Simulated scan of single mutants.
Amino acid sequence: MPTTLESVVTKYLRTGSPAQRTREEYSTTLRKWSRWSGVVPLERLGRKEIREFLDWVHEDAASRAGTNPGRTTNKVRSHLRAALSWAWENDILDVLPRFPRHKPQRDVAGKHYLTKSEINALYFATHQMRSPRGWNEAWPVGRYWRAALVVFFNYGVDTGTVWKTLPFHEPIRWRHISWGRQSPDRELKESSPWGWLYYRRVKTGKAFWRPMNRTVRLHLKSLCPDEPDPDAPVFLGGGTRPNIRFRQLCKLAGISPKRDIESGDERLWVLKDLRKTCATYYDEHVPESSVEILGHSAGGITYRHYAHRAPLAFRAILGLPQPSSFKTLARGFEGQCPCCRRKFEEADS
């Protein structure tokens, strides 16, 4: 009996607890699928059929005087990819079809990510951050935030993975860092000259051993004490509300709030926007790599398939172009302006 998209989506939604709005969006996608004249069983669904369906969705949205048909099409694409990835992961489908690229779209809510010039401004503004009350650590709080920015940019981790703000968060600890070439995860065959970093996603609980590139290694080494406590957290200085400190950092860096294009309302930046920033630059660097790097459930990454998909993440992480400010540590200009060599004065506590 042929497998229908309706049956797969129904089973997929039952496996989790999506919000009502998410269920409604999937129902809308199914209605579009049933209206499309080229409906085929999922066993015969390939890249050609997916492209034709998405082209039809785009034309349909445009004919209905839609203001952003590209965004509508990309939303349908994400639903279709999530459901098919789940079906492939659970052996309902033998092969996961390739997907065409995203359609050009207008970001309705404005720019969701930080530009590299803004990241550079954030990085250098950390020298102006005041230490929290009672701060007695060996390094200024800005050094921890600089390393945190590097980790956010390269891995798109959750805020709770860097700073434990809730009891169920598992922050990165010194035992989660391996400086050796070989990964502690034996399923990974690659070797990294800069070492490996372990972290767990807050939302899904999935665990990852990711390779470090030179930039990440240097920044983590700059925080490492001579004899680190394996159970001690790597990152300090986030406080109980790191988003408040991040907004203060944005103010120091002179970064204006986001602005909604349609309403004109301003919205403050949050640390989650660094995750969106990570996704943006990875997809520019290696298309579709952000799904693997960020550990999205839609990617269908499980222990069974992880070893086969890890090379994509490995290649993307080791080759991701870094913002110029991140390179100051490698060039020996830590604490100095890279253009004029003016020394930054760390803010007093």
Rank of each mutant, 00 (worst) to 15 (best):
R47C: 05
A207K: 02
T73I: 12
F314T: 04
N213P: 05
S7G: 14
G319S: 15
T72G: 05
A65E: 15
V270G: 11
Y306M: 07
V150N: 01
P100V: 01
R51K: 15
D348L: 11
P225I: 02
T204L: 03
G332Q: 07
S37G: 15
E59R: 01
W194E: 02
F99W: 14
E292I: 13
T4N: 12
G46T: 04
F168Y: 09
F208C: 08
R181T: 03
E288T: 05
L13S: 10
A121Q: 15
R146N: 11
G238H: 01
K276H: 11
K251Y: 00
G142H: 06
Q248M: 11
G195E: 03
G142L: 08
C337E: 12
E187I: 13
K203R: 01
L45S: 02
Y12L: 04
W174Q: 03
E6A: 13
N68I: 09
N120K: 10
K251I: 01
L80A: 02
W139S: 14
G237K: 00
K48E: 14
I293T: 00
R275E: 07
K48C: 07
C340G: 04
R173G: 09
R181L: 01
V76C: 08
S297P: 12
V286G: 00
Y199D: 11
T67A: 13
W179V: 04
I177V: 13
V141P: 11
M129P: 02
K203F: 10
K164I: 14
R35M: 12
C278Y: 07
W33I: 10
W33A: 05
Q322A: 12
K251L: 04
Y155N: 04
E137M: 06
W163R: 00
L320S: 00
K343Y: 02
G66I: 11
I92F: 01
P167H: 04
Q182H: 10
M212E: 07
V40Y: 10
P41Y: 00
A61P: 03
K206I: 07
T3Y: 01
A232G: 06
T302W: 02
Q322D: 08
T29C: 08
Y199H: 04
I293L: 08
Y26I: 06
P97F: 11
E227Y: 08
K164E: 12
A138I: 14
R186Q: 11
D91L: 04
L236S: 10
A253P: 06
K48G: 15
W179Y: 10
V108N: 07
R267T: 14
K276Q: 03
A82I: 00
E137W: 02
P311A: 01
F208A: 05
S27H: 07
L114S: 09
T15A: 14
W56R: 01
L149R: 15
K111R: 14
K343V: 06
P104W: 05
A138R: 13
F99M: 07
L30R: 00
H112I: 01
L236A: 11
P287H: 09
E187V: 12
A65H: 12
I172Y: 09
N213E: 00
K343H: 06
E25S: 15
N136E: 13
W36Y: 11
A19I: 02
D260T: 02
E262I: 15
I177D: 12
V216N: 02
A19Q: 14
L318S: 09
R44E: 13
I293K: 04
Y155R: 01
V151E: 00
F246G: 13
V150R: 03
N74F: 06
R210E: 09
